[in-house]
């Protein structure tokens, strides 16, 4: 084999390897980028019903009096948290565009302060795109003192552009403990900072 050809071939091999390695690194980056991309995608499409997890300003909207939407609240206890969460108003019949307030009661049954959070979810998932939460306990973690009972509101609007097919919305809140106050606190701060921007 002529050595010049061989050297050229080795160079070509090296070039291919460099390119595939580059593609590899790019794909690895892409894998991790998928996490934020997924969030963006979900916020755009309502894919996972989490689009209504961030505060939005109240908007004056035309109230569509001709249309009724039923909104149901359900709560779910998470493990390791000595709390209960109760929706005082279990079901609402609302007009799209109007602003409504629902009351929730948090109770800490422990004789020590506990931090926790309520993770929101909306079904049908598309509905989360048309739900504007102006005030919600789910935007941040809560700390409840020993035996504390706290009533917190959820203020929300439903866009009049809610698709015709959606006549019912279910808003679920699942309680979870905030595990290690220090690290999880940072995490939470990051999350909420991300949420506000």
């Amino acid at each position: 084999m002529p050595s010049r050809d061989h050297a050229a071939q080795q160079q070509a091999v090296a070039r291919t390897v460099r390119r595939t390695l580059l593609a590899l690194v790019a794909m690895l980056g892409f894998a991790f980028a998928l996490v934020p991309l997924y969030d963006v995608f979900c916020n755009l499409t309502g894919l996972n019903g989490k689009a209504a997890s961030q505060a939005k300003a109240a908007v004056a909207m035309e109230i569509d009096e001709s249309r009724w939407v039923s909104v149901r609240f359900i709560t779910q206890q998470g493990q390791g948290l000595p709390w209960t969460l109760e929706a005082l108003d279990e079901q609402f019949r609302i007009h799209p565009g109007g602003q409504y307030s629902a009351r929730f009661v948090f109770t800490n049954h422990a004789d020590y302060p506990v931090r926790g959070r309520a993770v929101p979810s909306v079904s049908p998932a598309e509905g989360s795109l048309h739900l504007r939460k102006i005030m919600c306990f789910c935007f941040q973690e809560q700390t409840l003192a020993a035996g504390e009972r706290r009533e917190l509101p959820l203020v929300f609007q439903v866009d009049p552009d809610l698709p015709e097919g959606i006549r019912d919305l279910t808003l679920a809140y699942t309680l979870y403990p905030v595990m290690t106050p220090s690290s999880a606190g940072d995490d939470g701060a990051e999350n909420s900072a991300g949420g506000e921007t």
Partner: peptide, 12 residues
């Protein structure tokens, strides 16, 4: 038993 233990299979 009532509240479970987070991070383990022990449910509330």
């Amino acid at each position: 038993v009532v509240n479970g233990k987070a991070g383990t299979p022990m449910a509330a």
